[in-house]
Design a protein around this nucleic acid. Sequence first.
DNA 1: AATACGGGGAG
DNA 2: CTCCCAGTATT
Length: 345
Amino acid sequence: MDLTRALLDWYDRHARRLPWRLPPASRERPDPYRVWLAEVMLQQTTVAAVLPRYGRFLARWPDVAALAAAPEAEVMAEWAGLGYYARARNLIACARAVAERGGFPETEEELRTLPGLGAYTAASVAAIAFGQQVAVVDGNVERVIARAFDIATPLPQARRTIRDRVATLVPAGRPGDFAQALMDLGATLCTPRRPACVLCPWCEACLARRHGTTLQRPVKPPRKAPPERLGVAYVGRRSDGAWLLETRAPDRMLGGMPGFPGSAWDRGEEDAPPPAPGDWQELAQTARHSFTHFTLTLRVRVARLDGDTTPLQGSFVPALDPATLPGAMRRVWELAQTSPLLADP
DNA sequence: AATACGGGGAG
DNA sequence: CTCCCAGTATT
């Protein structure tokens, strides 16, 4: 039996049931908006992390017209905690472009031109939403294919070979199911650390298994240790309880998200003057947060500000829901809660 | 080709 | 702790 047939048969029996997905072998076409939204949320993000957020987002903006009309700050707030905030900014831009042109384009090539749709997402929407016969390659697929064909070339150089291999396997009839089947296989059986080869539909054919190289595929380049960075953040609260916040510039780290004013730690600044006149006190403890490419230590300075304070940076917001803050800022907020200076009025 | 860009789940 | 995840945009 060929690889494609074996994989689809396995998928028909073991497909994960996910809210953005139709059951296997379904004759219906899924809503392109829902497919696109899920694919963007899933970029570098685990299914487990997306699951509780997808339904909430969809309930709030059920179609592309609704999202296109949404205020940007509300979308950013809904995205808080999901990371890679350029995704949310691109999501809005894409929704507006699609609403403008009256719907999603159906080819991989046209989809690729939309904001936030790269090679993977354009291919996945084309295959899953529109039934186009295209190769969908994500991290799971890279692992599965590198193992099945025992590809020793390191990533990312091996991407072209992997893509070509997938392209020869995609069936004309069920390209969307095939893409999702390959990803399910990587997510549930062909896992990085402990692959369940005995359950795998490709067990017999898998070259890495035959050669005993499974755990060494795919070959990845070594990564260097992320550097340490320092910074300062100011948590100010006015006598009426309002918090001093800024909206971070879109071209910066955590761009478009709310945050506490302070040094530009994403640009190497370790200190900065206060964002408003006041009696600022530095907390004994620091706020630590790990990003992909550096680890940040933030000194936190707090102050209770006068009712007529005019901020030099940021502006006062009457209420602050920490759930709408990105992780690093949430840590700062939590630490600031220990200071009596910031207690509710 | 290399780097910036988050956060959380799994082991 | 480390690794990795339904990647994209920029340089």
